[in-house]
Design a protein around this nucleic acid. Structure first.
Lengths: 113, 113
DNA sequence: ATATGATATCATTGATGGCTGATATGTCGA
DNA sequence: TCGACATATCAGCCATCAATGATATCATAT
């Protein structure tokens, strides 16, 4: 019986939890087209500024995005092209076998969605 | 300004929330080697039987795994090879750019981990 | 130096999800 | 049919997290 590697599993879980939020995914989606300032992100996602800022901090700490100060603005970008691949692959899964994700009532988002 | 597609984003978030749990990932990892009964999954993951069963139900409803009754046992398997690709890609991300995921104290797991 | 605009931080609140322990359903063999 | 084993379901508790509103920091221009 092959035992599951706990450490790797936990890291993956952490990564997926980071991705398992509509707000953060919306931010990542906004950044797919290229670097964007916080204000631009706020505009295109509809998130409140503090909320967007908070999620950006998290994504930044986790290494998924990188921020660069340009004057008064901070421009964020995806820090790894692999991330785009991951997102695309997720879309394929959702469109294909994992169609049950849509009606599935487990792990519903909060009231904000 | 390109507006983010809310529907797609929400589906992806749901998928990632499904994957954002150590217990479910441990189950998926156990199934990477091939179909396994619930008992075998319980043995290799260390989860309690009700807990494993509950997670399997969720994964099944979301279409990520498929169950088949064989006598008294129910054998589960990964329902889509894309899922393995996704998991591998996640590992690459964690090992590479997203190394910050390790020290990041956001989105910590519950007390059980 | 100060005002303005851009971004970050903080505390509170409200809701969701996971684990446990007990129990129910279901399947097979005697 | 009954007993034993495998799996599924349920209720309750506890912890975590996201959003809000107010406020703090930081950078620039006048």
């Amino acid at each position: 019986m092959l035992r599951v590697d706990t450490r790797v599993v936990q890291l993956r879980a952490k990564l997926f939890r980071g991705l398992g939020d509509s707000s953060r995914l919306a931010i990542l989606d906004a950044l797919r087209a290229g670097p964007r300032s916080v204000g631009e992100i706020v505009a295109s996602t509809g998130l409140s500024q503090p909320n967007a800022s908070n999620h950006l901090r998290c994504l930044n700490e986790c290494g998924l995005v990188a921020g660069e100060q340009r004057g008064r603005f901070v421009h964020y970008r995806l820090s790894d092209p692999h991330l785009e691949t991951l997102l695309s692959l997720a879309d394929e899964l959702v469109a294909g076998t994992a169609q049950g994700v849509y009606p599935c009532r487990n792990y519903e988002p909060g009231k904000s969605d």
